[in-house]
């Protein structure tokens, strides 16, 4: 991990979506999909973003790319606020940041040849001549490990893993510095998933990419990330270096998540911590700490006050009244 300048800074970002109330009616309620998230992604690092469905992790990824407009808050890319950019400036900035989607079937236009799919970003940003663009496409296909003749074929001719390689080549075409990988390997078989994870790893090192790796699979996130952030109901509840999160988790939700992951070792069958109840509705999140109704440690204060995300020793941040971050000792400076 590098401790370079932050490339992406998210400051108290909120996003709410209206629910109910028909086509022209007024919204009857709001879903707080992202409810005050702040985080930093440093140059060259991979930040893993984990949480269960509906926790807001994909929304957060899209807010960072400004594919969605935040309701409040600020996103800085390389020190500049994305929200303050003009349409033209934003378009230029878009070259710097790309996304790889989960579904390698649904995210590629079935009527376009691979060369056009991969080269589309180049054409949109008017990069190079037609011939140069085609040369770049061939280079990209080689980079992601696809045969050269792939350029003239259609997406349906490829398997899931190969399609994900096409999606990655498309994202890399405009030479971005930052990539959001949103469940990029979730739909793939184990053996193919390993190929794509290795590819992302190699590309990151080769090209100096910064990565926001969004996934629900804790094993995959541990493998890929330098730092990890855990989301629950629109908020980050814990964030820190990978070893800290996996070896020394503090938030009860993080601990429950980790204990729920089946360990591929039959000698380590364990007693799991089982959560009671379902994820509460983000339309009416519980007061105080959103996790308190499912938490075995909840105190009165948890039902009343939202715990702030506070950073402690070793850059380990926790939002919990009962298990707060360990304090920075004098020795840590």
């Amino acid at each position: 991990m590098t401790s370079l300048a932050p490339l992406v800074e998210v400051r108290d970002v909120h996003k709410r979506f209206p629910v109910g109330g028909g086509l022209f009616g007024r919204a009857r309620a709001w879903v707080h999909a992202v409810d005050g998230v702040s985080l930093t992604i440093h140059q060259g690092e991979t930040l893993g973003l984990v949480g269960e469905s509906g926790c807001g992790k994909s929304t957060l990824g899209r807010l960072i790319l400004r594919l969605l407009e935040p309701t409040a808050g600020e996103v800085l890319f390389d020190g500049r606020s994305l929200l303050a950019l003009s349409a033209r400036e934003l378009r230029a900035m878009r070259r710097e940041m790309q996304i790889v989607f989960q579904d390698p079937y649904g995210s590629l236009n079935p009527r376009m040849r691979v060369a056009s799919i991969v080269g589309e970003g180049l054409a949109i940003h008017r990069l190079g001549t037609r011939r140069e663009r085609r040369a770049r496409v061939d280079e990209l296909l080689a980079l992601v490990g696809l045969p050269p003749d792939a350029a003239d074929r259609y997406p349906h001719e490829f398997s899931g893993g190969q399609r994900q390689r096409i999606g990655i080549a498309r994202a890399l075409a405009v030479r971005p510095r930052f990539i959001v990988a949103d469940e990029a390997v979730s739909a793939l078989d184990v053996s193919i998933q390993a190929q794509i994870l290795n590819l992302l790893h190699d590309l990151q090192r080769q090209l100096g990419l910064t990565l926001l790796f969004i996934a629900h699979d804790l094993r995959v996130v541990e493998h890929m990330s330098d730092r990890v952030a855990i989301m629950y109901l629109g908020r980050i509840v814990e964030c820190g270096p990978r070893e800290e999160i996996y070896r020394n988790p503090r938030h009860p939700y993080t601990r429950t998540l980790l204990s729920a992951v089946p360990v591929p070792d039959p000698r380590r069958r364990k007693q799991r911590m089982v959560l009671g109840g379902d994820l509460p509705s983000p339309v009416r999140p519980p007061p105080g700490c959103a996790f308190h109704p499912r938490c075995g440690h909840a105190l009165d204060v948890c039902r009343r006050d939202i715990p702030p995300l506070e950073t402690g020793r070793g850059g380990h941040a926790v939002a919990c009244h009962v298990f707060p971050a360990e304090r920075v000792s004098a020795a840590d400076g």
Binding site: V190, S191, A194, R219, E222, H223, R247, V261, P264
Partner: peptide, 10 residues
Amino acid sequence: ALLRSMPGVG
């Protein structure tokens, strides 16, 4: 190969 291609927790 299947066992080795799987990232493991811990």
